[in-house]
Design a protein around this nucleic acid. Structure first.
Lengths: 191, 191
DNA sequence: ATGAACAATGAACCATAATTCATTAACGTG
DNA sequence: CACGTTAATGAATTATGGTTCATTGTTCAT
């Protein structure tokens, strides 16, 4: 059980954002779920946006550090690395399902200008995925007629949508099952 | 040039929604771009939501009817059909780039409950894609270890995200090029 | 040219919900 | 225990922007 207020608020906010979307989510509802007064939230966060920002940052940071870890490892094929990363994403989802829906939902309006730190993290992750794909192409494992950036975006969208569509049912599958399914879509497409 | 106000409003709204997101988009801004007074919008639409709803409906209807057309045709492989549908999606984007970002952005919070007509259309399209994939599996063209519904979600997400990431640059590619790229991601994944 | 019918306007209204802050509760320490 | 300090509260304030509607402009048949 989480016991510091900061994290309690983040957790409550994740739930509310996930089910209402950021804009329709009410601070009062977040406070209610967190079991505190609405004003208290402002002792921990500058404003509503700052809550979402922190949720974003935490999740993306986790993905980013997994990507960095994979980048450093030398004796692993791009395929194995992608499997590892897929696993990490599933772990993330498992640890907080509601985050999944939010994570990329607000994405396209946030990664543009906005918060320096956040967009750097997201951009970094994208770059790292791109590099990984480029490696795979060079190693003759992936298709040559492919733009790594395009592929990255296609994959991110695919993963997100797939997760969002399952959302609540997600926990009824094993992590292994989910990782495997996701990995196959990324790698093989329909055939 | 569009000349009836209804379509002028839809077009202006598409632009504003695409760049601000639905909730942050101001009616006053839409009116300004449409070159009319804010009140005028309410002569053509019940409210702000109704505008988004119509944008959704038009786009999905177009996709739905292409899917239905494909379903009827017998002497075409699932692969060919998917190529056709991909082409139709690219056509749609070409005719209004900003729509792409909106469809993606608001999707997951709209297809759930909400407006009868809209969610029926979206649901229908999903079903039709699922059927197409099922056909492909039966015909031994697609992987057997695949859940058609999962695959559908993965593909829809991938397509929209890819489109949204390119958005403005989209028109600098030829339709054929784009269709081809997209088709390959759907079918082959990374390899 | 006139005025009835219809279309358009945008300032004012109003609902919503984020944020503030005066007040109250909880805590720790001598 | 008393008292200062810090944390929490939630009712009141305020900002925002969707929506309305009294007013004004336009159209067109006579």
């Amino acid at each position: 059980m989480i016991d510091n207020k900061y994290d309690i608020i983040l957790d409550a906010a994740s739930q509310v954002f996930a089910c209402e979307g950021f804009h329709k989510a009410k601070i009062s509802k977040i406070a209610e779920i967190a079991g505190i007064g609405a004003g208290t939230i402002y002792l921990y966060f500058k404003n509503k946006e700052a809550i979402l920002e922190e949720i974003f940052l935490r999740s993306w940071s986790r993905i980013e550090s997994k990507l960095l870890e994979m980048k450093k490892i030398k004796n692993m094929t791009p395929l194995q690395k992608i499997a590892e990363i897929t696993g990490e994403i599933i772990e993330l989802i498992y640890s907080n399902v509601s985050v999944a829906k939010i994570l990329l939902y607000e994405y396209s309006f946030w990664n543009s200008n906005k918060k320096e730190k956040l967009s750097k993290t997201v951009e970094n992750s994208q770059k790292l995925i791109e590099e990984l794909i480029t490696d795979g192409i060079k190693a003759n494992i992936f298709r040559k007629d492919m733009n790594p950036k395009d592929a990255t975006m296609f994959i991110i969208g695919g993963v997100w949508f797939w997760i969002a569509s399952k959302s609540d049912d997600l926990l009824s599958y094993s992590k292994e099952e989910l990782t495997d399914t996701l990995f196959n879509y990324i790698i093989y497409g329909l055939k």
